[in-house]
């Protein structure tokens, strides 16, 4: 078998979808909290008019966490006409709900209300918007922020998610294949981050930042027959990311990373991030590129997998035999009982 089969297995192991069993408990918990908050907001006079899941689950780029919690980014939208003037007011209300429901470490962060539910390995972010027409405004501010440090800030959460999944500039017939490869690459890169960075630094290498970089520099790769070549695609995409101007060398060997949101308000996703974060990201991406190049040049599958295992962790398995093992095990048809072909003579 070729190296792609190993990537496919790897992706199968790390992929997390909203309907996956691994995620079911978290979802139930999320639904119940949503109902609770909905009631509270309604009673407070600013009923929730819309809600949606934000982030990787929505964009098919979710991965199973190697340690820590399942993340849920739950957006709650109230109408601009009924929304309190102070954006921290509904955030406090949400905090109350979380505290009453037994969440630990519940606190109001600048863009959201966040809490952990220890029993279920759940980490939840409630993100509150007000909406006027089609325009969303994010409730920004901490618990005790004064007027200068809190605001309803212009945002486009739906536009961002649409941007991530939009491949309308691709050939119609190939958009689906290119998009799927993109989803896979984002998952690989996120798992790579979880493996290669300490938890503290990794938390600052935001998923959305990685997703935007991969999307903007995607170099998809397929065989003539249309078989995915994820190794080539990932290597080429990482090369392109490093050349894309996201990294600014502020001091000798020290990098600042800057990736602007592709939608309103077009702010820097990594705004305020440290030189250390930028430098680590730059250096680790450079190493990723080198290792992928090395793997690509090898013909022995087991040797390739060893390199990829070191980059992506044990979910990228190393086969027993040099040629990928399981020669006979795969004599199965992953297709239906019959297929109409165009073949004749």
């Amino acid at each position: 078998m070729g190296i792609q089969t190993h990537f496919n297995k790897f992706r199968g192991k790390i992929k997390l979808g909203r309907e996956d069993d691994a995620y079911k408990k978290a979802r139930d918990r999320d639904d119940s909290i949503k109902r609770h908050v909905t009631k509270e907001f309604k009673d407070a006079g600013y009923p929730i008019v819309d809600d949606f899941i934000q982030g990787s689950l929505k964009t098919h780029t979710g991965i199973i966490p190697i340690s820590g919690d399942y993340d849920i980014d739950r957006a709650l939208v109230v109408d601009a006409d009924t929304a309190p003037e102070n954006p921290v007011t509904p955030k406090k209300k949400a905090l109350e709900v979380l505290e009453n429901r037994g969440f630990k470490n519940a606190k109001i962060k600048k863009p959201c209300v966040t809490a952990d539910y220890a029993g279920d390995d759940l980490h939840i972010d409630l993100i509150i918007y007000k909406r006027s027409g089609d325009q969303h405004y994010l409730a920004v501010g901490k618990k005790n922020s004064d007027e200068n440090n809190r605001e309803w800030a212009i945002a486009d959460p739906l536009g961002l998610m649409e941007w991530v999944v939009d491949f309308s500039d691709c050939d119609d017939d190939e958009a689906q294949d290119v998009r799927s490869q993109f989803y896979r690459l984002v998952r690989y890169v996120k798992r790579w981050r979880d493996e290669q960075f300490s938890e503290t630094v990794g938390a600052k290498v935001f998923s959305i930042g990685l997703t935007v970089m991969v999307k903007q520099n995607l170099e998809s790769s397929f065989s003539t027959e249309g078989a995915s070549q994820d190794l080539e695609a990932l290597r080429a995409t990482v090369e392109a990311i490093l050349d894309a101007g996201y990294f600014d060398e502020e001091e000798d060997g020290k990098y600042r990373v800057r990736v602007d949101l592709p939608v309103e308000p077009y702010r820097d996703i990594f705004y305020g991030s440290s030189l250390d974060t930028g430098t680590q990201l730059y250096n680790k991406l450079s190493r990723l590129k080198e290792q992928l190049r090395k793997a690509e040049a090898l013909s022995d599958e087991r040797e390739q997998c060893k390199i990829l295992n070191e980059l992506f962790g044990d979910d990228f398995e190393i086969p027993d035999s040099p040629n990928g093992g399981s020669k006979t095990a795969k004599a199965t048809y992953l297709t239906p009982g019959f297929v109409r072909t165009s073949q004749g003579a």
Binding site: G2, Q4, A227, V339, T341, Q343
Partner: peptide
């Protein structure tokens, strides 16, 4: 099969999509 990398029923040389 270029998609599943398992055995397929239509040839991967074909120019018309199967089924």
């Amino acid at each position: 099969d270029p998609k599943t990398l398992g055995r397929g029923l239509a040839s991967n040389l074909n120019f018309l999509a199967p089924d």
